[in-house]
Design a protein around this nucleic acid. Structure first.
Lengths: 204, 204
DNA sequence: GTCTATAGGCAGATAGAC
DNA sequence: GTCTATCTGCCTATAGAC
């Protein structure tokens, strides 16, 4: 495999990343703060100090850029989930690590990419819609697995099936980000997150 | 007081409402489904079968229209909360009625107006931002009052202060709407809402 | 109050030079 | 790969006739 550039390779975010990756970095931040309808090629181009046609060379449409954005975000998120699952610890500690992922996004003054896109779902191109749904489905599957582990261990207590609990954790954390952001108050998110997870521990 | 038209009066939504009210009706639906950056005067004008300058006669800028939107939505929401508070019943039944308000919005395939605006908060004009914050603050105050009632009655059980619980209820319901909408699945919202309120009742 | 006409800006996107 | 030039379309908003 040649390590030299094929036209549309995916690169990591790091010092001296490829142009495509830098475009994704800038666009990601813009979408997470302004929404898909609130950012433009012109915004990205200005921050990258290039002209808009250059962007079209890397991503031939805004829709394709959006798809790449979700793809990369999902991959990274899932990688982080795999990492959490690999390390030893109680199911509760894994849920705490999960909530921390959301908290870290919020502390960078951003909304979850897919939570933001979910808000503007009706205006999204079809492929982006599907990718957003997939992101939530992945999260749900991962959480249900951890919840089941916790139930078997006896460290977590919940009624109903793990999938339903997983869904309420996802929506609870997404909502906590959504509301905390206008207040610029990360502690507000943390308090809600703690309450969500606290509800899964046996009462003292 | 003359009942005849002063230029910018506020009217109720009903059969034969004033033009301003019909504009608000259409714009409200568009914002709740597409977001503030995803709707335009042209969309409203087309649905109302007028031209865009007509809209500017009633609301001289998009920002002012947005402010009027939040104002009306908040007033109606608060009125509904007063109505819930007036009728007798346990604190839990009031929380259930509260959650039902959100559920009704979702079942009309819409996001909460202020939840939607919270997502696009960074792109909002300053006055709209303040109005969105006020909406959440009102909700928080109302919920905290009901929660305190429940705690005194002994029908609700929660740790920490009522305000923190109120915040987590708001964000939980907003998030449940946010995530349920892409799935077009109201039952998903209901399940999460039940779980949020169920956490406030003594375990059997 | 609603219209026509229009301004002025920004959107996403393409052609073609370098 | 990035540029200049340009297209087409949509956006918010205003002037002024009716």
């Amino acid at each position: 495999m040649a390590s030299s550039t094929t036209t549309h390779q995916m690169a990591k975010t790091s010092e001296e990343a490829g142009t495509a990756a830098r475009i994704l970095d800038i666009a990601e931040e813009l979408v997470q703060t302004r929404g898909f309808d609130g950012f433009s090629y012109a915004h990205v181009a200005a921050k990258l100090r290039v002209t808009t046609p250059s962007l079209h060379y890397h991503f031939k449409s805004k829709s394709e850029l959006g798809e790449a954005l979700i793809e990369r975000y999902s991959t990274r998120f899932l990688d982080a989930l795999s990492e959490i699952e690999r390390r030893p610890g109680t199911a509760l500690s894994k849920l705490e690590a999960y909530a921390l992922l959301y908290g870290d996004v919020l502390r960078s003054r951003r909304m979850c990419l897919c939570g933001m896109l979910a808000a503007g779902y009706d205006t999204l191109p079809e492929k982006m819609r599907q990718a957003v749904i997939r992101f939530f489905d992945y999260n749900e599957t991962w959480l249900a697995r951890v919840l089941d582990q916790g139930a078997r261990e006896g460290s977590l207590v919940f009624g109903g099936d793990a999938t339903a609990v997983a869904q309420s954790i996802i929506s609870g954390l997404e909502g906590a980000m959504l509301v905390a952001r206008p207040y610029g108050d990360a502690a507000r998110f943390d308090a809600s997150a703690d309450r969500i997870l606290g509800g899964l521990v046996r009462r003292s």
